[in-house]
Nucleic acid binder design. Structure first.
Lengths: 212, 212, 212, 212
DNA sequence: CATGAATGAGTGTTCATTCAT
DNA sequence: GATGAATGAACACTCATTCAT
């Protein structure tokens, strides 16, 4: 009996999470109402509050798994032995952009981190940590590409690398075009930007070495 | 006699503009309410409507002067005969970043396509036009650097160039550090990023030509 | 269990309808605010939106049932075989007045063209249609009385007939006297007015025919 | 010097009254804003408050002269020796309808009389008195038409007569069509209605006398 | 005498959230 | 475990009115 209950409960919660995830991603956090989520998840809007303290908390609980998943993907790519480092980096960038554009809502979390009330800062920290880990993985892969140790030079380069990614995101995050369409159209450009940066880094390295 | 009146009026208007600029930049256009602006500008929310026809018009009046000024600076640089194109582009990038960071993060407005519904009237179009002009000026300068005609290749490169700039802006816009300090510390990195991109473009061009 | 809920809900909705009806009639649609309705209906103004999509829809739902009922009564009278046409018309007029006065002065809504923007959607059109149907039924009955075909002459006469009815309504709608008392006292006058109009129409017809 | 001042002052006041009158009549009391009046009267909106305590008071001061004028017109018609009583009544009805449709705003005064604050009830009473006088003039003229003394019979008839007028007003007061256009189109119908009523009254009189 | 600056109360509407069931 | 009913706060915006000049 209990199991049946809790089973249903689990299902409802999952439905809410799935629906909210889809809606947040498609329309943006602000543009989605609790009632809308409830309707699509086929439950009452009050039911959501049984599982999530607030809309914000729903967003948080929603983001962690996605971010974790992204991190896992990154790690998979790292461990793939078949890909040359440059391809790895390209693939990572694609994944990163894909993920961020598909989770437009995450912006609000990343950016408004500071506004989180002090008494619930733990999830924040977790999110931040994963962000740093992802950053680190990509920096290392860039190091591989350029045969560079983990030094200040690499840090500077990877910053520039991330400028490019953030620039892409900030350019396209608020576009109203459906994400998939957008991506299909733009992925080649993004790939090109990665290639060019690597070429640029290498060329710059030669210059620097020449000087040194 | 009148001067006291008009002086007060000027001050109020300025306070509204300043406050709105700060708030829009920090929280995004949608997330800021007229009452919030009014409260921080220490006036009634209805007072805002004395000076600005609507929230959207406030945004517009807020963005236009800065953008126009930026465009003028860009044109000055273009016309300078003493600088080689690469230096011009670097200088433009500096100006661009300087300007966006100094105009308290209005870059969200500049970059953000959100406030630019295509089917709306003139105001946004003006903003958009200036944005396009600035983009165009820099694209042309990049063309000079790479000895490229104004074709699709150049367009793709200049997009990538802008990703870098936007990425820089979105990374540092929310920093609490005073802008000047920030800039002094980071300008070298930004310069480096421009250099690397140009190197990358050139290297990529050789590859493409080799192929062709 | 549910019954308590749904009971309360029914009551609230009814309270809103009643209150809105009274207020619209007394002060006019535009002059009544949702908050005012809510306050008098002893609920929050947002509660209204639980039951009615908008202010306009509230007006609509308020008018439709009464109007429909009135139309049905009219049709009954038409089909009665025992009454001579003149009596039918008198009875219809009585019903019309009765109804409008009883439905707390909704006549402002019925008569008032204001809420009937032509370029709007269905709801007002429905109301308008019923209004026209009622008008049509009475016009036809007037035609029977005067042995007139459905031509412009009849249209002109029936307009005048309706002026009389509307005049009665606009005269007595704002009286504070309870409707029933009012009606008992005035019904003879109203009857007289119908008689006089019919006499007048007939006399006028003779004149017109004499001319022709 | 003083005279110049007070001259200007008078002019301003007159401009305000004229403009407000026009606007109230064309758009209705509620739909006109003080700023709109001021702009068209070429003064500041605050200036209006130098001459009129409030918007409502402006409406009142505006209505009295018009009503008085209407009364005067009625009296002129009464005293005209050339017109037969029936023509007089027709002309009076025309004037009445004309006036009321041209001063749509007066509705709010007539109808909302009760809502006037106690401490300024004098104008109310004045207005009411004039209304009664006008009613009386027309009743007497109707008496002339029907060769009836000022008894209950005449009172009943004149009530019916006014139902017709009020019906016309309530039908067309809220039309958005410009008044003049409306009137040109409808005046014939109104004339017909007066004729028919008189015919009806006469016929009814014969019936009553036959009975008696 | 006249005005520009400023405001509080109000409009319809939406939303996340709570409470009783 | 789940829900319908209900609400207060907020949104952009308008208005009649007041105050200092």
């Amino acid at each position: 009996m209990d199991s049946k209950h809790s089973h249903r409960s689990e299902e409802t919660k999952k439905a809410i999470l799935t629906t909210a995830g889809k809606l947040f991603a498609n329309k943006g956090y602000d543009a989605v109402s609790m009632r809308e989520i409830a309707k699509q998840a086929k439950c009452s809007h009050t039911t959501i509050y049984l599982y999530f303290k607030s809309k914000e908390s729903l967003l948080h609980q929603l983001s962690m798994p996605s971010l974790t998943q992204l991190k896992l993907k990154m790690q998979e790519i790292v461990q793939s032995n078949t890909l040359p480092p440059e391809k790895k980096l390209k693939e990572m960038s694609n994944q990163f952009i894909h993920f961020c554009l598909n989770n437009k809502n995450l912006h609000t979390i990343f950016i408004n981190a500071k506004s989180t009330r002090v008494d619930e800062q733990k999830p924040e920290l977790e999110i931040n940590q994963i962000r740093l880990e992802i950053f680190s993985i990509m920096k290392n892969t860039l190091g591989e590409c350029l045969s560079l140790p983990n030094d200040d030079q690499l840090l500077a380069y990877s910053r520039i690398f991330f400028y490019n990614l953030y620039g892409i995101l900030s350019t396209y995050s608020y576009q109203h075009e459906p994400t998939e369409v957008l991506l299909e159209r733009l992925i080649p450009t993004f790939g090109l930007s990665v290639e060019i940066l690597i070429l640029g880094f290498k060329a710059n390295l030669k210059l620097v070495e020449g000087e040194g």
